[in-house]
Design a binder for these strands. Sequence first.
DNA 1: GTTAGGG
DNA 2: CCCTAAC
Length: 698
Amino acid sequence: MKEIPDYGFHGYQVPTVPKGPRSIRKRWPRKKSIEDSQICPFELLAAVAGKLLLESESSASSSAEGKDIFGIHKDGIKFEKLEEHKSYRSQWHDPGSCVESAFVPDSAIRALDSNSSLADIIHLGDESVLKHTSNTTDFDLSKDIDLDLKLEICTSNSTKRDLPDKLKGNFSNDGSLCDGQVKNGNRLVEDKSIHTGDFIAANTGSRDEHRTNYVNSNTVINSDRSVQFQLPLYRDPIPSASFVKQRNNVTLGTNRDDAENSFRFNKTKIKAFRPQTRFGYRRIRKMLTYKYWKEAPRLKDSELPDCPEEMKPFYRRRKGLHSQERCHREAPTKKRKVRDHNIVLACDYEARIKRTLNSPEKGVERDNNDSTTFLRRAVGPSASLGRVQKSMDTRVKLSIKSFKVPELYIEVPETATVGSLKRTVMEAVTTILGGGLDVGVVLEGKKVRDDNRTLQQAGISDSSNLETLGFTLEPSLNQQAPVSPKKPSAFVSPDANKKLTRSPITPNLELGLLVPGIPNDPPITKMEKRVEDKLELGCPLREKAEAFSDKAKKDSKALIPIPTMNVEPRAVVPLNQRPKCSELSQRRTRRPFSVTEAEALVEAVETLGTGRWRDIKMRAFDSASHRTYVDLKDKWKTLVHTACISPQQRRGEPVPQQLLDRVLCAHGYWSQHQSKQHGKHYVEALRITDGQVERVGA
DNA sequence: GTTAGGG
DNA sequence: CCCTAAC
């Protein structure tokens, strides 16, 4: 060590930095809890799957024969009940058709009624639309929206072809692999299109005719310029081993040929994908069996608030921004290359709910505890039967065309792959969907707030009113958006509520959500082309893309997932102002401390001492949002180091020696003294000596 | 969420 | 600047 000056602090030799006890802290990896990171999309999916299962089960149980078949099709939720046989048959509708209608099973209606779950309403995916907003500087989402992005929850590469197989699985109450009452081993064969996320659930042991198909969507796209992300919502309906396995595949990311493009939940490190062992399995099981099912009986309750209850346990565990950020990170080696060519896309969602007439029809029992039925059914065969119809019910057909979800920002390097774009969007969507969205019901322009009212009581059963029925997605009042506004991947602005229900008469209720601090710069239209090129040429996801494009070529209505979409970046935000988002979130740009900043830091440390970095941050760098207290700590560390080394060894912007002397002085002092006790003493001593640091006595 | 320290 | 452990 170099010559060590003595600044008079009790003969303390400044640079003798004692190694603190932390250096001997254990550093072997602790067992990181799973919920820290990788749950994200699957939690959502799990909830949705469970929800769907519940609905199907619930209805199935109402039908004594258990011959219910639900179908969910691309244009929304399609439930058709065959009156005579009390069975449900899926129906496929023309995407462009305006006459779509759907029976919504009681449970769904009730779920809607109770405002309990977003998933209830939209069943995710299908008509959830990411719309690409215009390049205007305002955020009026109602206009110039020309890009429908159909969300695609494509979980893993491995699901793309043999997904039906992967969906096979038996289901039992405890989620184990043993034989159960509910089986979902039926293949999906009806639709020739490739559904990466077709959702199959079959009710009780019965076969094809009893199959329940939750097919999410065909290849996308309708008319003109609209482009949708195909979003075969991969909803494994069964909280069973199939689900777990799938998840393992995803998280492992090692046993596939296309690891890079595989759906990795945007985790950076391999260790984040470590196989789910029993813990993970159990956790999922718990999620699906305990959490979800236990909540189920309460779906009717008004205590089910604004947030999908079954979602809460999944998301409330998620760590805050930090882990969110981590969740988005990409491998560092890849980050650098793409860092400088990011494109910021601004998207928003839309919720379009289409309603159709209701028609009286014999309904299943409206026991006010369908969930109980479901639970019982899930437990054993005896429980699935024996529900006696007690009353007639008028069914309300609700066809939810699409939802508009709050505005979404994603940041995509132009060198990004299609797959990464998908994942980015998925991440953002998942964040939003899981981040506390509520469904609001608007009737005749007025919000229906009483969740306890029946549809009939609320007038929703009245066919004359249905045309004025609408739904909204809105940020949950109970649950904040999970992502901090500082560095969002996508988040819901608190202002969102103000913009709700802008057009109550129309079915389209939109949410306009702004991301503060993101300037609405004129678009860089060149980007669009470049994006196309890049996506077209360099897509490492070719293998995956082909699956879609093959179909797309044959199907005029289909589009190759993303490449040709008219992505017009809303704005290119200066790097250091961009919200860091998605898995492609990069290492922060280096921002060397200026001398001025260093001075401010030194002064703060002189006053407050080391070890109070948060205070130092607030005191001296409160307005510098890009300086975290960790940054300050690190900078102090480097300052001390710089002061210790010879000027020849120093790099970067030269720090005045005088300042470095102060650094050493303060460092020496605070190394010997506790910050809190002696702060004033030190500062006073400095003041007394008027900068004659060498003579400062303690 | 903060702090300390290694990378 | 990142990451992690410890708190």
